[in-house]
Design a protein around this nucleic acid. Sequence first.
DNA 1: GCCCAGGGAATCG
DNA 2: CGATTCCATGGG
Length: 272
Amino acid sequence: MDYCTKNSAIIMNLDCFEPAQTLDCGQAFRFEQTGENKFSGIAKNHFISFEKHGDEIIVTDTDTETFEGFFLNYLDAKTDYKALQKLYSSDPTLKSAVEYADGIRLLRQDKWEALCSFIISQNNNIPRIKGIINRLCEGFGEKIEGGYAFPSPNTLASLDAEDLAPIRSGFRAGYIIDAAKKVASGEIDLDAVAVMNISDARKELLKIRGVGPKVAECALLYGMYRTEAFPVDVWIKRVMEQFYPDGLAKEFAPTAGIAQQYLFHYMRTKLT
DNA sequence: GCCCAGGGAATCG
DNA sequence: CGATTCCATGGG
C-alpha cells in the first residue's frame, strides 16, 4: 500500500480493494454508488469518496489527516490480503470465491456502529437496513460535512423506543435503545468485549436484548475485528450445507470471518 | 414448539 | 397483478 496527495485528492494503491465489492457486500450500510466507479459514504463521523481507476484509487471528500488517522485503519490497509487469498486457494470453493471477487476487505468498523447496525439487520434485507440506518443517523446523529454521523450510545440512551418511530425499525427499536443504555451506562464495555476470549465476548454481547448468536457474531467480526468470528446467515448456511458438510478446514479458523466474506458474496451474487 | 412483531424486497402463481 | 415468503430475536 502506498499513497500520495495531489491537489485535494489522495491517490492510493491498495492491494485487493475494489470499493464496489468491499463497500457493498453487506458488511457496511452507509456507502452508496455516486458515480460510474465512485462510492461515497460515512464511517463513524467521517465522510469519504473512493473512485477506482485501474490500479489506483482516487480518494476525495476527506483530508490527509483523517485519511491517515482513520481511513487507513478502517480499510485494514496493514493486512496482507494477497497472503490470505493464497492460503484460501488450497480450498476449491474458496479459491473460486476469491477469483470471483478478490477486492473484498474486512472493514474495521466502529464497535457501537457495527453492533447497532447488525441489531437492525436482523430479520431484514439490505435495502431496508440502509433506509433505517440513514433515518437513524439523520434524525439523531451529529451533522458533519457530507451528512450525519452515526448517533452515539449516549444520545440514543436518553430516548425511548417510541422516539424511534420515525426511523420505522419496527420491533427492533426497543433493542436499539436497550443496547444504547447498556453501552452508555458501562454495563457492557465494548472495548473490553473486543479483547475478551471469544466465548466470553459472545456471552457478554448476548446480554443485550435483541442480540442473538448471529448478531453477536457480526458485532465481533465487523466491529471488533475478531476474524475468528463466523456469522452464519441463510447464504452461509447454504454454502456450508453444499460445500462444507464437515465444516471449514482448521487452517482457516483464525480468519474464518474473512473467508466468510468471500463465500457470502460468491453465493449471493454468483451461485444459485 | 408455534406464532407474532413491521416492512420492503424477492419470488411465485 | 396480488399473494406469499424471506429474514433473527424475544416474548407470549
